[in-house]
Amino acid sequence: MSFLKLTASTLAVAAVSATSAAARDNVQIAGSSTVLPYASIVAEAFGDNFDFPTPVVESGGSSAGLKRFCEGVGENTIDIANSSRPIRQSDIDLCLENGVTDIIEVRIGYDGIVFASQIDGPDYSAFEPADIFNALGATVLVDGEVVANPHTQWADFNADLPAEDIVAFIPGTKHGTREVFEDKVLMVGCETTGAFDAMIASGMSEDDAEDACIEVRGNGITVDIDGDYTETLARIEANPNGIGVFGLAFYENNTDTLQVATMSGVTPETATIASGEYPVSRPLFFFIKQAHIGVIPGVKEFAQFFIADEVAGPSGPLAQYGLVSDPELAATQAAVEAEETLEIQ
């Protein structure tokens, strides 16, 4: 009999606690794994410095985060989505469909994307976008012809590079980093090698040519990494020939195991990224659901704290960890203060 009593009382307890599950008092954040480290630093400092509970920050990638952000308005949806890419029309459409109409965009700073390999591996110390495109693009230009990529070693197309098999670990498609990699490296390489013009000349439409430019070889030569940079690092450690795509901050935390390559002759570091000299960088964002400001305690305070000069400024803890701070931070602060939402349709 005691089991019946036990079951009944347990169910009662569960029911009582379920009804008391009203009002969430902590901020919920999800999204980009590139922004996650910064968001967790700010979340810890926010908990230490304010009387609000520490926000919960989840990872999962920019697209996954924005999808959850756009699930709707209410306590059981997240308040803030981290993203390493700007919001897309497809995200906005999903948001509108679910009643998320007022979105505040906050740019927190910039992140550099670096190409790094094992510190005692082959000498991958200088790349051009054209090299990466020639190595990883699905179709490349060889002797004036657009052909399926025949290169097996770096030295096949550029005698300055090591005669080693091509293997690259690149961010998977759900990562915002992938988009920057495609736009700023593959696309640029495609244009400078002349492959893009050759594709147009062969009768492809511009859109098709762009798609062809950013298509990678797969097949074990390019490997999509869907997890975090630690996974890329583990792959690099197991594979001396491999090059990996990392965020600047991750590389700077692991300088004793990784060597970094220059891109177009520029070494990736905070100064060269802030000045725009280093070509492969992108802004980092988070998006706030305005409907949650004033409902969930601490949402606006957290956002303001995140982009305060003491936190996201050049001498704050985020810059200390590897974020390239935004020279226009003051404008962002004013926009958050005024709760300026995106104009969307």
Binding site: S20, P53, E58
Partner: peptide, 22 residues
């Protein structure tokens, strides 16, 4: 269900909070 990430930052301050707080 949101339990992986930067979550475990506070001790619960009671039984109900233990079950309900992140």
């Amino acid at each position: 269900i949101g339990m992986v990430g930067f979550v475990a930052r506070e001790y619960p301050d009671g039984v109900v909070s233990g079950f309900m707080d992140p």
